[in-house]
């Protein structure tokens, strides 16, 4: 402990001694009241500083928070615009989905009630009709390929004109070489593909599918397979005999390719308006002259 040399030092020394007694007295006191007094006084003195500090801290926090909120608000505004765009895009896609759903292939299973295949034509009667969502013009397929299409209907009955009907004509193409032509029914030969150039790339065994160009059938439905090649009269066009994918005599269980939204018929592509004369009863009562 340094020795006091000046009056000031002496006063400091005396003060030190006095305050040491006070401090150590408070520390070593067996009574809790001095410590409680010190604690209360310190808290009272410190509280304003702490309050100011807390206020400043809160203020700084608010400034930082405000910056964050402004940034967040800008991001939210941008996100809101994005959401609006997504909503509109979603609506457009929904519309397109709805459109696609209406035009998607919906299979209506049916089984053949009766067959008729003679020189007048090749037709079958199936157990699905207008009340089942079937419309005039709907394609009918079997397990192997295209069977025909509905040409008359009633409540739960439909008449299907087979591909081999001599009045039947389907736009088709060679699957391998994409050579287009028209497949017509022939009661004797089965099917013929016409209007194909002599130089077209066609070989026996080629698969023939619907091309979808005629608008009556969706593309890609198997029609048959090239059996024999020849020449039309004149020699400029090929005469192509086709073995049907679905043999008329074996047709038992079929599927009607119906539109998802049957109220709209077969959509814009393959359906044609239902004419009153197309009813099955009408066609039975009034025999139609095939072209």
């Amino acid at each position: 402990m340094p020795a006091p040399r000046t009056p000031s030092d002496r006063a400091a020394f005396l003060l030190y001694i006095f305050l040491s007694f006070v401090a150590l007295g408070v520390w070593l006191s067996p009574f809790p009241s001095p410590r409680a007094w010190v604690t209360g006084a310190a808290s009272a003195l410190y509280l304003p500083f702490r309050a100011v500090s807390k206020g400043v801290e809160n203020l700084l926090g608010l400034v930082v928070e405000r910056e964050g909120l402004l940034t967040e608000a800008a991001e939210l505004r941008r996100a809101r615009i994005g959401i609006q765009e997504l909503r509109e895009e979603n609506q457009r896609l929904r519309d397109q989905m709805d459109f696609a759903r209406r035009d998607s292939l919906h299979l209506v299973p049916a089984w053949v009630l009766a067959k008729r295949s003679d020189r007048l034509g090749s037709r079958v009667l199936i157990n699905r009709g207008q009340l089942d969502g079937v419309r005039i013009g709907f394609p009918v397929i079997g397990r192997e390929g295209l069977v025909g299409r509905v040409d008359a209907l009633e409540g739960h009955l439909s008449r299907v004109r087979l591909l081999t009907d001599r009045a039947s004509a389907v736009s088709a193409s060679i699957d391998r070489s994409h050579v287009d032509g028209i497949v017509e029914g022939d009661p004797v030969e089965g099917l013929r593909m016409r209007f194909v150039s002599y130089s077209a790339d066609v070989k026996p065994g080629d698969v023939v599918v619907t091309s979808g160009l005629g608008g009556s059938f969706p593309p890609g439905l198997p029609v048959g397979r090239v059996r024999r090649l020849g020449l039309e009269s004149g020699g400029l066009l090929r005469r192509i005999e086709i073995e049907p994918a679905e043999l008329p005599e074996r047709v038992q269980d079929v599927f009607v390719l119906a539109a998802g939204d049957s109220s709209r018929g077969w959509g814009f592509l393959w359906a044609r308006p239902v004419a009153p004369t197309d009813s099955l009863a009408e066609s039975v009562r009034t025999p139609r002259v095939e072209p």
């Binding site: 408070v26 520390w27 001095p34 010190v38 604690t39 310190a42 410190y46």
Partner: peptide
């Protein structure tokens, strides 16, 4: 020191 002791009252006065 006294204020610090008062705020952390383990050994008030020390």
């Amino acid at each position: 020191g006294l204020m610090q002791d008062g705020l952390m009252p383990d050994h008030v006065g020390l």
